[in-house]
Design a protein around this nucleic acid. Structure first.
Lengths: 332, 332
DNA sequence: CCAAGTTCATGAATCGTATCATGAATAAGT
DNA sequence: ACTTATTCATGATACGATTCATGAACTTGG
């Protein structure tokens, strides 16, 4: 019945001041931890927890011009890599008493730009963006940080060591005894920073004299094209490759499904290494052998950077180290 | 260098009014779609997109007392069920021009209560909570909706048809030829609404004369206990059960790992049905055969309910239908 | 042609907070 | 003791939007 007594207004600073018998400004200084005389301070503090006062974010934001909100623009939260990123970024912001305005683009370019306007409307103190739009309109008046995408030296980019990841993967495959390998990647890994995964991979293959092939699935039907590629490189049920490096764990997962359906054993017939470091349900084990992105560090670094006040002289590309992790799709 | 020109202030309503040569109030009425004369309206609209004006959320929130924000309190975004919920709730809110204040509790009771205070501080228009704290302090002055947890008739609860899910699972196992089955569940499924999964399961087992056992892993070491249970019910490498219903897909996934390590084949030796309906990377296929929660509908219903203005006379428990889905861990 | 009614732009007041200029009171220096 | 510094509470003001009372312009009816 009367489950909602919406009329009961929350106490304001004026209420606290009246209750404590002090001036409005004094309450404000106590709340913000500024210099206040002892007796006044304790009077105010008493009134505060007597009334259960908490400052009104809207009022403060309006006055200070700072909303204490950071926008995070990201495709979705379905991919566990994104989910983990959202989690850690929110945790980092929380520590610093910031909130997160979460915007899901679903890879839609119009949405990306629309959300930047929305962020501006909410007077956010900064934007962290993980987008796949090469022509993003970056606002000049809000601190802007990207993850995995480099736009210009004036927009800091936080990324994993993509080159190193590819390099480690190829070395690992060689070390595990592979004689001929391939690198498969979809569009998101073909451009910008993640493209370096290929460079590192190629570099290590050349260095170790490991024969390799590159397959770009930059297509409207990447799944079908991947299937075609695997089938066309199979002879009498034997795959031409005994090692595969795949651009993302998501794709690696699909590759493995297809291989299994082709009666090709993983890791016995072919060893597979993915990229991202996805764990099921946050368990210890990876779902595939993989190059692990340092998600917590990426989150921390993004937050530190976007909140940095010396925004002008920051490195424009922060590159964080990756590691290899066993996940059952390689030997050992 | 000059990458951040923080000085360039965003245009305000006053700027628009001056530019259009009209009064402040007129601009406001245009922005809010109220009755305004044609010539005035077009003058204002022209000024708006000439200046790129967007209303300031803080200002509006302060004046109207409504922040257009809903708090979502949830353990994390690591579990794909939660991740999907976050995704759909955000989408639903977005449609209605609301934002989401996301709070991760990590199953910590103190955090749950702290976040309710935070929500109040941000003057949110409502709270949607998925918590596992039986003693939650529910605020009386903010619309409050729970997912999966029933507190009282004055707090609306949105939940899947847990009883039906258990019932369907048992029937399915019977139908698939099982002779003896068991239900395994961890603490989160033992209390409140999700406890009905057991009731439905038992009910169907009795009805179809299917022998069954219930195993509660309400323990500090649920994983170890689960392992013990499976081992102690194995005789000469043969599991006593040929069908398992598991409280969540997360647990089912672990159960299957353990079974495989015991050289028990799934689904040949034992068929496993989980609960939640988790898909890897949003793919079509489930990761295990499962009872699928109607996540989108739960999200939609939660949002509709929390935003409902006739909050007083709402049903206190909204129960949404579940379905069975094949995921490779059952026959057929 | 005038009274009464209707439409609609105007400008001031207000929401809750932070900050600035003011002045009172105390401390320090000669 | 008198001047100069220093500390610190006060109360008014501004941030940007919405809303209310006001009155001007216009319409309608007799």
């Amino acid at each position: 019945m009367n489950c909602m007594a919406k009329e009961k207004k929350l106490p304001t600073m004026v209420d606290v001041a009246r209750q404590a018998g002090v001036a409005l400004g004094t309450v404000s200084r106590v709340v913000n931890g500024q210099q206040v005389g002892e007796e006044f301070k304790s009077k105010v503090e008493e009134a505060i927890d007597q009334l259960g006062y908490r400052y009104n974010s809207s009022g403060r934001a309006l006055r200070t011009g700072s909303s204490k909100i950071i926008a995070l623009i990201i495709p979705n939260t379905i991919n566990p890599y994104f989910a983990l990123l959202v989690h850690h970024i929110n945790m980092e912001l929380d520590k610093r008493d910031y909130r997160m305005l979460l915007c899901f683009t679903e890879y839609d370019k119009d949405r990306e730009n629309e959300y930047i306007q929305l962020a501006r409307q909410n007077r956010v103190d900064g934007i962290i963006a993980l987008t796949y739009n090469p022509r993003l309109t970056i606002p000049g008046d809000i601190p802007f940080v990207t993850i995995d995408r480099f736009f210009s030296t004036s927009v800091p980019c936080i990324a994993a060591d993509n080159f190193g990841g590819g390099y480690i993967a190829a070395h690992k495959l060689k070390e595990l005894g592979c004689r001929k390998v391939a690198f498969l990647r979809t569009s998101s890994v073909i451009t910008n920073e993640p493209a370096k995964r290929k460079d590192g991979f190629v570099s290590a293959c050349v260095e170790t004299e490991l024969p390799f092939e590159i397959m770009d699935l930059d297509d409207s039907q990447p799944f079908e094209k991947m299937k075609q590629f695997l089938i066309s490189h199979t002879d009498h049920g034997r795959l031409e490759f005994d090692g595969l490096f795949v651009g993302t764990d998501a794709l690696a997962w699909q590759v493995i499904q297809v291989l299994r359906s082709m009666r090709i054993q993983v890791p016995e017939d072919v060893q597979v290494i993915g990229f991202d470091g996805i764990r099921m349900f946050g368990n210890q084990e990876m779902i595939v052998s993989t190059i692990v992105q340092p998600v917590r560090e990426i989150a921390e670094s993004s937050v530190n950077t976007v909140l940095s006040h010396h925004f002008a002289n920051l490195p424009s590309l922060i590159c964080l180290p990756v590691t290899y992790a066993y996940g059952g799709t390689t030997r050992e």
